[in-house]
Design a protein around this nucleic acid. Structure first.
Lengths: 304, 304
DNA sequence: CCGTGTGAAATGCTTCACAGCG
DNA sequence: CGCTGTGAAGCATTTCACACGG
C-alpha cells in the first residue's frame, strides 16, 4: 500500500538485504569486543557464535559487503570493524534528539551505547514546562516549543520519540516537518509518516505478548487442547457462530519456528515446561480491558 | 546451532507463522482502541490501516486463526479481541519479574501497557543493596539474593533483564535455573540459553544503527558514491588487500526494500534528502572506539 | 588443508487475484 | 454487491554443500 513508489533500482549494485542490515550491528558489537581484547582475526564460525547467528548466514551477509576475509584464515577484526562501521554510516556523526523525557527518555539519554557508536544526543525535549532547564544525563531539557529550532540548528535527521502514545503522532509530525527523516518510536502507536521517512518501533508490550504466546504453547505441550474447548467463557460469538477450523487450506503447516530471535547454546538447567501461575484469568469478554489509560495504552512514563 | 530438535509437528493444525504471531499484538491494540470507541465491526481494510499493515496480510494472518469474519461485513470487534487475546495467551495472568532497576528498569516498571495485557509485575530485583526496600512504581525493590525464591514462590516464567551488559548472562542463568523459560533482554549482549528457553531482545543501539544505514543511503542518493572512494581513511587494509566487488554472484539484486517496519501513509511535508550534520567524523581506524565502558557497551543505566 | 565465498535448493513470507458466502 | 478466505504466484531469506584460494 502506501503511496505509489517502486524504489529506485538502487544506484546500482548497492543492494544489501534488510535482514542483513539488521544483523550488521550485531556483528559490529561482537567485533568491537574482540578488538578490545586485541584479537587480530576471527573465523566466521567464531564470530557467528559471538554474534548469536550461524556461520553460513554470517558469511552470506559479509559477501554482500564484499570479500573482506582471507580464505583459510578468517577475517581481520580491525578491518571488518571499519568496513561495517562505514557501511552502517557510523563513521559520521549523527545528532539525535529525544522527545519525551520521562523514565524511558531519561534511560535512553543515559544509555552509553548511544554515544559510543557515532550517535550524539543533541537535545532532550519535553512538553512539561517544569522540566525545562533540568539537567538529565548532563543535558538541559528544553521545551517542546524549541523543537523546530533545535532540529534545524543542529541538522538533526534522527529523532527518538519516548512520549505517551497520545502525543506521539503529533510530535512525529513536527519532527518530520522540521526535517527529521528517521524516527525511532517507543510509544505504542502506529505512526503515519510521509514517504521517504523511516520509522522503526520498539514496543515492550508487543515483545511480551509474543513471549506469552510461546510460553502458552510450551505449557499446553502435554496438557494439549483445553483452551480450544474453553468455548464456555467466550464472549458474544459473532452473528451466526463463525465456522471454525478451515478444512485445510494453505494454513496449518508445522514448523512452529522456535528461536524467534535467539535461543542458542545449550546447557543443563532445570525448568521443564512450567505452567503459568494463575488460572485462566476471569475471562468473559475480559481480556485486555482492565486498567488502561483514557487513551489506548500510554506508557504512563511521562507527563504530557 | 541449537541442539537437536525437530519441533513436534504441532499438536496438529496449530501452526501460526512467527511473522503472524508478531503482528497479532498490533491487531489487538488497534482492536482494543476500536472497542473503546464502541465500534461494533471493522473491515480488513480499516483494521489493517489502523494497525499499519496491508489488508491482504491481515486477512491471511486471521485465516491462520480460523474464520472469524463475516463475508460482506467484516469482523466483530469484541469477538476478535477475545480470540486474539486467547491465542496470545493473554486470558491468563503472567507474573513477570524485572531485574535491574535503573532508569530503564524503572521505566518498564511504570509502563502501563504492561499490566493492561495480562502481565503483572511480580517483583523488581536489583543487585544494589541500597535499592532494596525502595519503592518503584509502587513495588518495593528486592535484592538479587531473593531471586530464586521470588521466581518459585510466584511461579514466574517470564523475566525481563534490564541490567548492564556485564551482568546479563549471569542473571539470565539464574533466572533460567530458577524456572524462567522466557526472557526479554534489554542488555546489549547475546544471551546463551538452554534449549526450550525463548529469548527476545530489544536493543536501542541496534535500531539506531539500522536507521543510520538508511539515513546514510538517503543522503548519498544523489551525492552518489564518494564513500566508496574514501579509501584514504581506511585502516590497515588486511593482509593482501582484499579483492573488492564480487563479479556478480547471487549478491546484488535490487529491491532496497524500504518500509522496514513502517513507513505507511502519505502527506506533503518538507525535508527532502538531508545530509547528516557533521563531516565524516575523524575516521582513521576510529569508528566505534570513543567513549565506551570497560565492558562492551553497557547501558550505563544502572548501578551494578 | 582450512575456511571463505557463493551457486543452488529449501523454506518462509507477502502479495495477487478471485471464488464464493452473507 | 461487498468483503472475507485462500489457492497460487512472486519475493526474500536461510541453509546447504562445495569449489577455490591462500
Amino acid at each position: 500500500m502506501a503511496t505509489g513508489r517502486t524504489h529506485r533500482p538502487a544506484t546500482r549494485s548497492r543492494g544489501i538485504p534488510e535482514a542483513t542490515v539488521a544483523r550488521l550491528p550485531l556483528y559490529l558489537r561482537a567485533l568491537t569486543a574482540l578488538s578490545e581484547r586485541s584479537v587480530p582475526t576471527v573465523s566466521s564460525e567464531e564470530l557467528a557464535a559471538a554474534a548469536g547467528v550461524n556461520s553460513a548466514k554470517l558469511r552470506k551477509d559479509f559477501s554482500y559487503l564484499g570479500s573482506y576475509g582471507t580464505r583459510g584464515v578468517g577475517y581481520d577484526v580491525e578491518y571488518l570493524v571499519y568496513q561495517i562501521s562505514r557501511e552502517l554510516g557510523l563513521t559520521q556523526d549523527w545528532p539525535v534528539v529525544i522527545v519525551g523525557i520521562g523514565n524511558l527518555g531519561a534511560a535512553l539519554a543515559n544509555y552509553g551505547g548511544f554515544a559510543s557508536r557515532g550517535f550524539r544526543v543533541a537535545a532532550l525535549i519535553d512538553a512539561d514546562p517544569s522540566m525545562a532547564g533540568k539537567p538529565v544525563a548532563g543535558i538541559a531539557v528544553q521545551h517542546t516549543d524549541e523543537l523546530e529550532k533545535i532540529i534545524s540548528d543542529n541538522g538533526v535527521s534522527i529523532g527518538v520519540i519516548a512520549t505517551p502514545a497520545g502525543a506521539a503522532q503529533q510530535v512525529c509530525e513536527r519532527l518530520v516537518a522540521a526535517g527529521v527523516t528517521s524516527i525511532l518510536n517507543f510509544a505504542p502507536t502506529v505512526l503515519t509518516v510521509p514517504d521517504g521517512v523511516d520509522v522503526r518501533k520498539v514496543d515492550l508490550s508487543i515483545e511480551l505478548q509474543i513471549l506469552a504466546f510461546h510460553e502458552q504453547r510450551k505449557a499446553g505441550e502435554e496438557a494439549a487442547q483445553d483452551a480450544a474447548q474453553a468455548d464456555a467463557t467466550a464472549p458474544a460469538p459473532p452473528p451466526i457462530r463463525a465456522n471454525r477450523g478451515s478444512s485445510d487450506g494453505g494454513a496449518g503447516r508445522s514448523s512452529a519456528g522456535a528461536d524467534a530471535t535467539a535461543s542458542a547454546g545449550s546447557r543443563a538447567a532445570s525448568a521443564g515446561t512450567r505452567a503459568p501461575s494463575g488460572s485462566t484469568r476471569a475471562a468473559s469478554g475480559a481480556a485486555a480491558r482492565d486498567n488502561k489509560g483514557p487513551d489506548g495504552d500510554v506508557p504512563a512514563v511521562m507527563p504530557a
